[in-house]
Design a protein around this nucleic acid. Sequence first.
DNA 1: TGACTTTGATCAAGCGCTTTACCAAATGCC
DNA 2: GGCATTTGGTAAAGCGCTTGATCAAAGTCA
Lengths: 340, 340
Amino acid sequence: MNYTMKDIAQRANVSVSSVSLVLNNKPSRIPKETKNKIRKIAEELNYRPNSAAVFLSKKISYNIGLIVPDITNPFFAFLTKTIDERLRASNYSTLFADSNNSFEREVQIINNMISHGVDGILLVPSNKFFYQPHNKLQEMIDNLNKPLILLNASSDLRVNSVNFDNVLGAIMATEELIKYGHKSIAFIKGKDHFVNAPERYQGYKDALKKNDILLNPNYVFEGDYTIQSGYQVAPNIFNQRDITAILSSNDLMLFGIIKWAKEHRENVFKRFSMVGFDNNPYTEIIEVPLTTIDQEIGKMADKAIDLLLTILREKVRDSKQIIIKPRIIRRNSIKSEHSR
Amino acid sequence: MNYTMKDIAQRANVSVSSVSLVLNNKPSRIPKETKNKIRKIAEELNYRPNSAAVFLSKKISYNIGLIVPDITNPFFAFLTKTIDERLRASNYSTLFADSNNSFEREVQIINNMISHGVDGILLVPSNKFFYQPHNKLQEMIDNLNKPLILLNASSDLRVNSVNFDNVLGAIMATEELIKYGHKSIAFIKGKDHFVNAPERYQGYKDALKKNDILLNPNYVFEGDYTIQSGYQVAPNIFNQRDITAILSSNDLMLFGIIKWAKEHRENVFKRFSMVGFDNNPYTEIIEVPLTTIDQEIGKMADKAIDLLLTILREKVRDSKQIIIKPRIIRRNSIKSEHSR
DNA sequence: TGACTTTGATCAAGCGCTTTACCAAATGCC
DNA sequence: GGCATTTGGTAAAGCGCTTGATCAAAGTCA
């Protein structure tokens, strides 16, 4: 086993209480020399406090649960990295779990994390999360007795959340294309129950309306955010001869379209202007890097952690919905409509 | 707070001891009806054991620490996902940390994890890990008092490890190229202090020797495993007119070469046969998917967790070095030398 | 000198759970 | 009926740490 305060106390000829007071820098009347002696012994023994014992008496574990739907998705990987880094900087650790896009797992994991004594939970919900009956979810959240923050998702539940303004993001993207003269803009939407998918579709529609462009239902396609689904939908887009631009709900599906085009010897970059969502780092591989809507992950992580730490510090109970403005990253995948 | 055994005991009119015995399915003389009553109440209250308290008395936390150098690298992301899944299946949770390729962080994190009471640690060491003085490292590992398993790295330290046979992987890759008639094979090696990099270089050299091909130092290039470094090295490879094939220490650097080629209108797939390492999932985006050496991540995770759980169960102390055979995944990036 | 204050600590309870030893009541047996 | 045995539990200590209450000794002051 590891050394305990008892070991230090014995070696320093003081009581455990004194050791505790000193190592935690609590105000006490213990003189400098004794303090130094205790600190030195702790150092020598490489004393590490037993968090379980600390938790038992203080009810603070300095563990925060983080649940993501799929860590192999670069978006969630970057988010996880940033959150872990920020938490560590505030002296917290990350209890991690991958829900593998399953709601049942999410519930299991949440229970398990509470059992493991996390101080709070950051949940990046899977698409399946919002399938559930509203009141059941609300009850679960309310019964947690620990702060829960939803990331990358919005909800009308009474719950803290941090999300990007997806409607705005899609508007920005659509208007960028319109600015370059495009009027026949295809949209690849995610499935209706996907987190943030309806909002992106809404933004697309809003932007068209605002610019007096009629929505053509033949220009709207659907995918499931994977490269494959982009690949599958690609021929249909190429078949619609008047489409000049594509807005995709994420970058991955554009990758699929590009792959299909290359295999079929179509010059996709000449034929279409393209904008995606997510700022996928692998855009680097593409010979023409994609213009994309960047959800600034660092910002989201910061906001979420600020919110969480504030709740923990001040024990507030009401829930807050934070919305972050996305930004557009202009690269080379948009050409003026007339230059084609 | 959450409900405790005390709450259950009160409601069931029994002692806390009984509740503990029943909920843990310990042999006891408590009759079925009482057991059922206790279980029912626990269920109703959504009782979740307080792991900290369990840990304090049993010294088992059911938490395993996992440290990776960079979660945004798909290889580590897949590894993390698999490990998390497997651990959860065995009733353990994952205390995660990203060391951001820093040795200091690794040490900090390990101490913190021990303090948080993990039962064991799975460490995927960063390159900088092996910079350290050998004896210091050994001392640190020995003083842990918890099983530590090194993943994706080999070491002559007394420590458990699970790694792929990188020499063999590189031999397989090189011989695959030789089989297709290639003799002028470029090699992009990782920096010497990179984990597994010297082994891959060794395999390349071994395979050449075995096949009576002289090593040409002009065919050996160096990168740091990033797309950029492949991009940078690309013109030098294109300049060596007799090179017909490229073996890269990872897929990412090949991506960089492909990108450079496209930008410079070189038909890279016609000019070179290529083999990489890692089975990077984004090979999908490339129009000619890459043949690669796959380090079966699932196998590595399984072996590591088996080893860890065995150590925990049987409290063995000696260290074991497990080596896994890699496999080659044949795709379309190799052409016969004569068909060029 | 005696009352009061300050200094330098310690005591003890409690956090929630596990586990071994123990005990009282009921039952079985001759 | 008296003893042993079985049944159905409980008591209590301990895990390592925190913290408010407490206390003895030394120093201060009038």
